[in-house]
């Protein structure tokens, strides 16, 4: 920006600071040199000095009255300020806690998701298994377990589609039109036959009994119950519900205290305005 004398903005700023004695030694020496060479700068300097003198010469206005305070004036204000500050603090704290609770929930959900992700490769591996490969590996079927695979390579749950390499869908024995006979060829080494002489068991799936491969002889006749994750799931669900309640409560506190603080603030402003 140049003024009508063609003085640059930088020179103008330096001239203004020059009359206030606010330039460094180097800047001052540089400007002194420029001033000696430029009549425009000299003229502008003179104008600035006159302007400054004129503003400084403005008569000081005396206070039209005393502004002394009395205890009542500050007491009311102090109480209002304290209440306002407390409410504002409560609102801010509740908001922060709400955000923490929100992040906690996201973290909890993330953990569940991570668990599923960890399980996914095992499931994919099981799904991508070729029938020949699957034939070499015994199919482990567990009963009394949730239909989800949970990364155990299962999939043999009731109503679930058979996985590649798994045994054909089984039917309850009473419904089965044929009697299932398992023959293990002697010349073909099979994991089902050896090395542990695994038993085959026929049972009804509806009653928690079914054909179970991979059963050890010492466990024959015993009722094997799969590890149940149901309580853990319930616990997680409970945690999330509790978290939701906490979030709701915090949000309510943040909103209510924030609103009251806002009302107090505007009321105080109005008091000042109508004063």
């Amino acid at each position: 920006m140049n003024n009508k004398l063609g003085i640059s903005n930088k020179d103008w700023i330096n001239l203004s600071a020059y009359i206030d004695g606010a330039l460094s030694e180097i800047e001052r020496a540089r400007l002194d040199k420029s001033l000696a060479e430029s009549k425009d700068l000299q003229q502008e300097l003179a104008n600035l000095q006159r302007l400054k003198a004129a503003v400084r010469a403005l008569p000081a206005k005396k206070a039209p009255r005393d502004f002394m305070l009395n205890p009542a004036m500050v007491k009311v204000r102090k109480q209002q300020t304290k209440l306002f500050a407390s409410l504002r603090l409560a609102s801010v704290a509740a908001t922060i806690l709400f955000l923490v609770a929100f992040a906690g929930e996201a973290l909890l959900k993330g953990q569940i998701f991570q668990n599923l992700q960890t399980a996914a490769p095992a499931m994919e591996a099981a799904l991508s298994m070729e029938p020949d490969q699957a034939a070499e590996q015994p199919q482990i079927i567990t009963w009394g377990y949730s239909p989800e695979a949970k990364g155990l390579g299962g999939g043999g749950g009731v109503g679930g589609a058979p996985m590649a390499g798994s045994a054909e869908p089984m039917m309850p024995i009473e419904e089965s039109p044929i009697e299932l006979e398992v023959e293990i060829p002697q010349d073909q080494p099979s994991l089902m036959a050896e090395p542990q002489e695994e038993e085959l068991e026929l049972a009804s799936p509806g009653t928690g009994e079914a054909l179970i491969l991979g059963l050890r002889p010492e466990t024959e006749g015993q009722v094997i119950e799969a590890e149940k994750d149901v309580p853990r799931e319930q616990e997680r669900g409970l945690n999330i519900t509790t978290l939701r309640w906490v979030q709701g409560g915090l949000a309510a506190i943040a909103l209510i205290t924030g609103l009251i603080a806002l009302i107090l603030h505007f009321r105080r402003k109005r008091q000042i305005q109508t004063k």
Binding site: L58, A60, K62, A63, M68, L69
Partner: peptide
């Protein structure tokens, strides 16, 4: 409060003048 009001009296002209300008 009296001490505070002494400060007020000492600075009120300066404060008012600045506010007025």
């Amino acid at each position: 409060m009296n001490a505070f009001n002494h400060l007020v009296l000492a600075y009120q002209d300066m404060a008012f003048n600045t506010a007025y300008r």
